[in-house]
Design a protein around this nucleic acid. Structure first.
Length: 893
RNA sequence: GGGUGCAUGGCUCAGUUGGUUAGAGCGCUGCGUUCACAUCGCAGAGGUCUCUGGUUCGAAUCCAGAUGCGCCCACCA
């Protein structure tokens, strides 16, 4: 069997993936004899295409799942997609627009048909992409937020909240996106700074003699003046106490404005007088309620001005109207001045259009009652955030939580399960007469018996279904109903087994949107926390630190990386770079690291197998035998690596885990052990190297599943070992409990140090090519070691001969156990002298430092004894080295 | 305005409860390809750990302040 010298992931990954899918290695079922471990995927938008953020997010989850699966947990990773109301509707609307049609043209029913068609066609794109990067979800359980069962849960939740008076309908000021033409929640209105102007407008005043004939108000949105119904001042502000007896006239509209006093007005800002537009500003809305002002809505759904403004402005867009107004007011000399001003304006999180605050009739959830428990569980660390600092961010938001606007004026989503009785419902009234909330369409009004019922036209916020994700995906609620009967018991059992889930992995952006709400929903409806740990990872940025986004064109497509370097390379580099919670800076070359590592593993495997083949060695039992110091040393490091790696994953430090495993494989196993056994590939060494290789592959499998699976199956094929079919079934490695002689470890470590230093000397002496001869002086007990392992040195430092002597003319290298002289004919002594001088001065200063420390009585008194001892032996060692170097310099020069 | 985080070699970052001659990857320099891997090996250069003060026998690490970045939240029109 010929093994190519380069690992080609492209050939292999798809075959391995196929094998996994056929073997259903991801499937988990409730099984009381095993411990459960479960994660629910943050469901990507059904419109989604895999981006680097997904790759990062899902690789972390996959590492955790694969790790637990190897530990013989029933590891369930629940996959699925989110219907993503506005986003998906926008996509299909854009498609329609290409045909020159609007959704209204084809009607609600047909439009929804188009949406489902679209979902059926493209909805699995991101799922297939997730598979491609190795995500080991339980694909048999794929969920969608608009599945029939899932929708049942949404309806149930609405019903329960309504019955407990935690849902209400009312006219309030909400965030309105004039482009999507729907209400948005506060979270969906992203505050961004916008360059703008602060205009100072003059409003004429009818007042007593001696008072000013106008007042000046400041505003960033002059067009809203058309809806002004008052001006407000601070009651403490004596400058304007005269205003109370005056009448203010709104220019252009010529409306008389009320004058109100309110503490909310900051006398320091602007002129200290505020224009009040109760229907188009959240603060003014509050003022309007408080002072019983008139609410004049001046805008249509698309933010053009409506019939409540003077005729010239009707039908004009808000920003155009602003320009027109400025011009008109300037003509009338009613603009005092304007100043450049940065204002924080809400932007639609789906289309970035500037939000217009607008009063409309919407459904809301009372959040304060839901928040209480959700605050407690986090305060008590029943749910832990990683990194820990997010706890504070979460709590801060929860303490200040506002009611949640959940109705959306779009068509794609869960229709609000509410019917209004045409006979007795009055939307202006606060009572619930004529409102029927039900999972099935009711026949008549329970209040008046009327039969004219109309369902609410709106749908629910996407997040109103997402917040149920951790338990609705398990089939909650578990009440019997005709078509759900058979499955219900199974589902209930599964839920009891897997729930609460263990870890949620997410980006900080959706902490409030999703994480906080899931905690509230789960506590409310299941009485349990939804997960015990929340891992919050960083944002993916380009190499300049700018967030990757399609619109900026600075994205790296993860699938292109998979194509070029393999999914393992993608995953490896992401995990290597993603320190816990910190942002990940990416550029194409970052993935070379992952590719190179795959290739290194491939070649280590290639070496071992070519040796097995050439030497006709068969391996039928995986016993590890310690034959010499190298076997002890590498096993000791393997044991340490297993411990460290396991601990790191347990502590949610995936980057640390992968670095440890990487370092072991490359810089311990390949660099030293494989080099050393090259010339002595005995049966024992063969066994040992396969043993180490297998253990290392298992450690690496959660991070780089494809190549580890591939080599695992090659081992299975090329040995007589009794291995499981898949590496994931082979168990997480445990420390090998063989007595390891500590003396062997010390000697081997000294050997490595010796090799390092002699290589260094070789370079510094300008002996790059030449073979060199060594004279070694050592104790009788270690002569045997040197005699036995001449081959190691010959190989590792290209030595020609090594002679054991009792006396050395000069010492190039020394440690506690042996001293070495290099026999050299010719050397670059000038260069070497420089190096010696540098080292001498280096050691001189180290000794000086050490001396000051040890001469410091307080240090000797107060520092722990072992530290002082360490310092002493350090100083001794430095001194020995210094003497050696000085002698060497004398002899050489 | 409130909150929160970061500042370590050219770049991106590690550095656990204060005690190392401060590390890694990439980049750079020199040497090296029949002998697993040039997607490689060996060696090297490069850091007053942002600044100031404090605690301590001892600070990259703890505390305070300053400076510079970043993120989140917020109704100063």
């Amino acid at each position: 069997m010929e093994i190519p010298p380069r690992y080609n992931p492209k050939d292999r990954e798809s075959k391995i993936l196929q094998k996994w899918l056929e073997g259903a290695v991801y499937h988990a079922e409730q099984n009381p004899s095993q411990k459960p471990f479960s994660i629910v995927i943050p469901p990507p938008n059904v419109t989604g295409i895999l981006h680097m953020g997904h790759a990062l997010n899902n690789t972390i989850q996959d590492v955790l799942i694969r790790y637990r699966r190897m530990q013989k947990y029933q590891a369930l990773w629940m996959p699925g997609t989110d219907h993503a109301g506005i986003a998906t509707q926008n996509v299909v609307e854009r498609e329609l627009a290409k045909e020159g049609k609007t959704k209204e043209d084809i009607g609600r029913e047909n439009f929804l048909k188009r949406l489902w068609q679209w979902r059926d066609k493209y909805g699995s794109t991101i799922i297939n992409q997730l598979k491609k990067i190795g995500s080991s979800c339980d694909w048999q359980r794929l969920r969608f937020t608009m599945d029939e069962d899932y929708s049942q849960a949404v309806g149930e939740v609405f019903l329960q909240l309504f019955n407990q008076n935690l849902i209400y309908r009312g006219n309030y000021i909400i965030n309105w996106c004039p482009r999507c033409q729907t209400a948005l929640s506060d979270e969906e209105a992203a505050h961004k700074e916008v360059d703008g102007w602060l205009y100072y407008l003059r409003y004429p005043v009818k007042t007593k003699e001696g008072n000013p004939s106008f007042i000046t108000v400041a505003t960033t949105r002059p067009e809203t003046m058309l809806g002004d119904t008052a001006v407000a001042i601070n009651p403490q502000d004596k400058r304007y106490s005269w205003l109370k007896d005056s009448e203010v006239i709104l220019p252009i509209v010529e409306r008389s404005l009320k004058i109100v006093e309110d503490e909310a007005v900051d006398p320091e800002f602007g002129t200290g007088i505020v224009k009040v537009t109760p229907a188009h500003d959240p603060v003014d809305f509050q003022l309007g309620k408080k002072h019983n002002l008139e609410f004049i809505n001046i805008m249509n759904k698309d933010a053009t001005l409506n019939g409540n403004v003077p005729e010239d402005f009707q039908g004009i867009d808000r920003f155009e109207a602003r320009a027109m107004l400025i011009e008109l007011l300037t003509q009338k000399k009613l603009i005092e001045k304007k100043e450049p001003y940065n204002l924080g304006a809400g932007h639609c999180y789906r289309c970035s259009t500037i939000i217009e605050p607008r009063i409309s009739l919407q459904w809301f959830v009372r959040m304060k009652p839901l928040a209480q428990e959700a605050i407690k569980v986090v305060q008590q660390d029943k749910i832990k955030f990683h990194p820990h600092r997010w706890k504070k961010v979460y709590l801060n938001w929860m303490f200040n939580i506002q009611d949640w606007c959940i109705s959306r004026q779009i068509w794609w989503g869960h229709r609000i399960p509410v019917w209004y009785c045409q006979d007795c419902y009055n939307s202006d009234s606060n009572d619930r007469k004529g409102i029927i909330v039900a999972k099935e369409a009711p026949e008549k009004c329970p209040d008046c018996g009327g039969g004219k019922l109309a369902q609410d036209q709106d749908v629910l916020d996407t997040w109103f279904s997402s917040w149920l994700w951790p338990f609705a995906t398990f089939g909650w609620p578990f009440e019997k109903s005709e078509d759900r009967n058979q499955k219900i018991e199974v589902r209930k059992k599964e839920f009891e087994y897997f729930y609460p889930t263990n870890t949620l992995v997410t980006a900080s952006e959706i902490l409030f949107f999703w994480v906080a709400r899931m905690i509230m929903a789960s506590l409310k409806f299941t009485g349990k926390i939804p997960f015990s740990d929340v891992i919050i990872h960083g944002t993916v940025r380009d190499d300049k630190g700018i967030k990757m986004s399609k619109s900026l064109g600075n994205v790296i497509d993860p699938l292109e990386i998979v194509d070029k370097y393999g999914a393992d390379a993608l995953r490896f580099s992401l995990m290597f770079l993603a320190a816990s919670g910190s942002d990940v800076y990416l550029s194409n070359d970052k993935f070379l690291m992952g590719r190179n590592f795959s290739n290194k593993i491939w070649n280590a495997n290639r070496f071992i197998f070519s040796q097995l083949r050439d030497k006709k060695i068969n391996i039928d039992k995986l016993g590890y035998k310690i034959e010499d110091e190298s076997d002890a040393w590498i096993l000791d490091h393997l044991n340490k690596t297993i411990t460290a790696c396991t601990e790191s994953i347990e502590n949610q430090r995936i980057d640390e885990a992968i670095k440890t495993a990487y370092d072991f494989f490359w810089h311990f196993f390949c660099d030293w052990y494989l080099e050393i056994i090259k010339d002595n590939f005995s049966q024992i060494k063969a066994n040992n190297s396969v043993f180490i290789l297998l253990s290392a592959l298992k450690l690496l499998h959660p991070f780089i599943p494809f190549i580890s699976e591939e080599i695992f199956s090659l081992i299975k094929k090329n040995t007589s070992l009794d291995l499981t079919e898949f590496i994931s079934e082979s168990g997480w490695p445990e420390k090998e409990k063989i007595d390891i002689d500590s003396n062997s470890l010390v000697i081997f470590t000294k050997m490595i140090d010796t090799v390092d230093k002699i290589r260094d000397l070789r370079g510094n002496l300008g002996l790059a090519q030449e073979k060199i001869s060594l004279e070694v002086r050592t104790d009788a007990s270690l002569k045997e070691f040197w005699a036995r392992h001449q081959g190691w040195f010959n190989k590792l430092i290209a030595a020609e001969s090594i002679s054991l002597v009792d006396k050395l003319d000069r010492v190039f290298y020394q440690n506690k156990y042996w001293e070495i002289n290099l026999k050299i004919d010719s050397a670059d002594l000038a260069k070497f002298k420089q190096v010696l001088d540098k080292k001498i001065s280096n050691f001189t200063s180290l000794i000086a430092k050490s001396k000051t420390k040890l001469n410091n009585k307080k240090f000797v008194e107060k520092a722990p004894k072992d530290i002082v001892e360490k310092e002493k032996s350090k100083q001794d060692d430095f001194s020995r080295q210094l003497i050696r170097l000085k002698n060497l310099k004398e002899i050489i020069v």
